[in-house]
């Protein structure tokens, strides 16, 4: 039982990171109906920025309080990823908006390839380890919970609350939802569609940056290729939860995290990804729009 709860906690931690990335996929999909394949690499850019900021901080100051360091890393990473995602949207997606469904998918894949190779070229192909930032581990009834996990949980919850507020209670969120429903009509009613879409990309990127920073903190290592696997997992999570649905993305992320950690704990670590993908396929076969997605009504 303790073992199970332990795995549950590990899974939820991992799932929170997936969930944060998945929101970026789902929001972009919701608003312009495209899979932003480069989003996983935006996450990687976030983790890398956090790494470099950490290195700068440790080079300049003898010691910085961990909380302050993490906060600075997170904020700078958010700014950087936002800048990247904003530029990508403007350069690679906006010219193709509304033309042809597969074209932006291909530019997104192209951007993903370009980004990860850009980082490989400029930062080198090797893994980049950093010394552990947070090391405390608490023992509660025989279950060990690390402070890292608590930080991840707290940050995720705070961000999701903030985010929920932003999407549901502000005029920005209203504009986003309006664009999601009918872009032409939203434009006619005075919503600045371009700006709203840009902001959506920035919001998605910021969450990915946070996920990237947390990822760096949790694993203590990052490499140029680290965008792909979490990216695909988060995308899987977004689809599993029902792409376009923000609560779905979080739910999907947590589920994928749980499946992975429980499968590795009880069955085989080699096949954890196979398990995650298989469950996605099975869920979609029975619920073709994911868990919380709105069923697509076939218009005849």
């Amino acid at each position: 039982m303790q073992y199970f709860i332990q795995q549950l906690i590990n899974g939820l931690t991992l799932g929170s990171i997936y969930g944060l990335i998945a929101i970026g996929y789902t929001m972009v999909y919701g608003i312009i109906g495209m899979i932003n394949f480069a989003h996983g690499d935006i996450f990687m850019i976030g983790a890398f920025t956090a790494l470099i900021v950490f290195l700068i901080l440790s080079a300049i100051f003898y010691s910085v309080p961990v909380v302050v360091a993490l906060l600075i890393m997170m904020v700078v990473a958010m700014i950087m990823t936002s800048l990247y995602n904003w530029t990508i949207e403007k350069v690679a997606y906006r010219p193709l908006r509304g033309s042809f469904r597969l074209a932006p998918l291909i530019t997104a894949i192209g951007m993903s390839i370009a980004l990860s190779n850009f980082v490989q070229v400029t930062q080198g192909p090797r893994n980049k380890p950093i010394p552990p930032l947070v090391t405390d581990v608490y023992n509660v009834y025989g279950i060990s919970i690390s402070l890292k996990q608590i930080v991840i949980a707290v940050v995720t919850i705070v961000l999701l609350t903030l985010f929920w507020y932003l999407v549901n209670k502000t005029s920005l969120g209203r504009a986003q939802r309006a664009c999601e429903q009918d872009r032409k009509m939203a434009a006619l009613l005075g919503v600045d569609v371009d700006r709203t879409i840009s902001i959506t990309f920035i919001m998605g990127a910021s969450l990915a940056a946070v996920a990237g920073t947390l990822f760096l903190m949790y694993y203590g290592v990052v490499a140029f290729s680290d965008g792909f696997v979490p990216g695909v997992k988060a995308f899987t999570a977004a689809v599993l939860g029902g792409i376009g649905s923000i609560p779905g993305a979080v739910l999907g992320g947590l589920l994928i995290g749980l499946i992975e950690s429980l499968w590795s704990a009880y069955f085989s670590i080699d096949y954890k990804d196979v398990a995650a993908f298989s469950i996605l396929a099975i869920v979609l076969i029975f619920l073709p729009s994911g868990l919380l997605g709105r069923p697509e009504v076939e218009k005849v």
């Binding site: 193709l96 042809f100 074209a103 291909i106 192209g110 993903s112 190779n117």
Partner: peptide
């Protein structure tokens, strides 16, 4: 080293230039 980087960029440029 730059092969895949250029490949990715080329994908974007060609697609934007000729979406179909």
């Amino acid at each position: 080293l730059y092969r895949m980087l250029l490949f990715g960029i080329a994908m974007v440029v060609v697609m934007v230039w000729k979406p179909r």
